[in-house]
Design a protein around this nucleic acid. Structure first.
Lengths: 72, 72
DNA sequence: TCATAAAGTCAACTATATTTTACATTTTGC
DNA sequence: GCAAAATGTAAAATATAGTTGACTTTATGA
């Protein structure tokens, strides 16, 4: 399942996947895979992404029930 | 930095590290290292821990500033 | 249309999360 | 005190997150 909230938050900052990757110290491909979903990033990277996009973990990576976190 | 919120949430459920590990499909050692801090678990494991302890990601793993997430 | 930035994808490699086994130490209840 | 459960710790092995380089495909704007 795609992480559309992350994609939207990045768009709101007018950043490309490469821009965000550079800020959080990751690669363009890794950021792409996280947005594409079906991927299991580390907490460290999630937190860096949240701070770069001015969001919290819950806002970008939490789903109460039957969401994309279901299939992790 | 220790994750005392997780330790407290686990205590509130009267679960040992081994109990929680069994529920989330991890080992006792991994749970112990996460509580001990200076460790970088995957998002999947964090989410499973949150659900097992009836907490959200923000409640257990988010720190606004100068918290334990600082050193990840 | 055309040029270019952005995004999708793939294989091979490196870094590290997680497991397994084993033993030491600390807590807890009797 | 004592026995058992819970926790701390550590080395070696495995699974997988994340990188690197290269190429393709899809936007986007001039």
């Amino acid at each position: 399942m795609k992480n559309l909230r992350m994609k939207a938050a990045r768009a709101a900052k007018d950043m490309s996947q490469g821009d965000l990757a550079a800020v959080v110290g990751a690669t363009r491909q890794t950021v792409g895979m996280i947005e594409a979903g079906d991927y299991n990033p580390t907490l460290k990277l999630c937190i860096r992404i949240c701070k770069a996009l001015d969001k919290t973990l819950d806002e970008l990576f939490w789903e109460e029930e039957d969401g994309w976190t279901r299939e992790l």
